[in-house]
Simulated scan of single mutants.
Amino acid sequence: MKAVCVLSGGLDSTVSCLIAKDLGYDLVNITFNYGQKAAKREVNSAKKISEILNAEHVVIDLPFIKKFGKSALLTEKEPPKLDIEELDMRFRTIQTMEEVWVPARNLILFSIASGFAESIDADRVFVGLSGEEATTFPDNTPEFVERLNKALEYGTLNQVKIEAPLCNKNKQEIVKIGHEIEKKLGVEVLKYSYSCYKDNGEDFLHCGVCESCARRKRAFLGAGVKDKTKYIE
């Protein structure tokens, strides 16, 4: 029983990967390098996690995406920062979503992952979409997954299905789920996940002040799970 995981190395995709592992799938993890600032750290994080989970790891380069839009993930723009108390202010998170939005990114990545899955006779692609990010990112919603799966019924001969087991969970719940599976499987991978928007010059080292780092900090704190992440601030 084989499955593909889209593993950015981030918290959500790492827990999605853990869920697939716990379900008994033989995993092939894909990390996409599309020119994002943190690509090197994301790839190294995903490689480490894949080694721990005894999964094959594949890196796919998509340099053309860097030409899309003006996302702070792809340009010299400073990624958005939010204080923890701002994370639930919808007007602010809509603003920051627009700053980091990469046009059609998830649609492109998940389509490629689905084609890859078909090529290796896998019919499941696990992705790390979260309910918390779905409040502002339309391509994190259950509706997005449902409609993409409908297209995949026609776009793949083996009807590959996208599995988004966390799309109704906030990050606090995601940390709890990940921590429980870690204990069950006797592994430790959450500390090797990489959430930061930046490359801070060292593997697993987070800036601690970008919006993504703020969400990570809040998640571990709210879950009551020790945060072993290394932060600059």
Rank of each mutant, 00 (worst) to 15 (best):
M97Q: 15
V6Y: 02
E188M: 12
C17N: 12
G131R: 02
G10K: 00
K47M: 14
S111I: 08
F68S: 03
C17P: 09
L7P: 00
V187I: 12
L87P: 02
F32M: 04
V28F: 12
I112D: 07
G208N: 03
K81Q: 15
L73K: 04
C196D: 04
C196Y: 06
G9N: 04
T14F: 01
D227A: 07
R105I: 01
V127R: 00
D12K: 02
W101A: 15
G9I: 02
S71Y: 01
G186H: 05
S195Q: 05
M89F: 13
K169W: 07
V175D: 00
E233D: 14
E98H: 15
I19T: 03
L109K: 01
G224S: 10
A117H: 01
T75M: 06
K169T: 09
K191E: 14
V225K: 07
E85Y: 13
C5P: 03
N149T: 08
E180Y: 05
V59D: 04
E182M: 13
P165I: 07
V175N: 01
A134D: 09
T141W: 00
S193E: 04
D61M: 10
E42D: 12
L62P: 06
A214R: 13
P138D: 12
K48G: 12
K191T: 11
P103G: 11
L74P: 02
G115K: 11
L185Y: 02
I181N: 06
G224Q: 10
F32C: 05
T75P: 05
K184E: 13
S130H: 03
V125P: 00
V145I: 10
S13P: 03
T141F: 08
G186R: 07
C5D: 05
P138V: 07
A3G: 06
R105S: 04
S111L: 08
I30H: 00
T93P: 10
V15M: 07
I108F: 11
G10W: 01
N33A: 07
A214T: 06
P142G: 10
L157C: 11
S50W: 04
V102A: 02
Y34F: 08
C207E: 08
S45P: 05
A104M: 13
H179E: 14
N168G: 14
T136D: 11
W101H: 11
P63Q: 03
K150A: 11
D61K: 09
G128S: 05
P80S: 11
D26Y: 09
E211S: 11
I232H: 09
D22I: 05
V160S: 00
M89L: 15
K228V: 13
N158K: 08
K47R: 15
L62C: 10
L157D: 14
L82P: 04
Y25E: 01
P103R: 06
C17K: 08
Q159L: 10
Q159A: 12
A39E: 08
L190I: 10
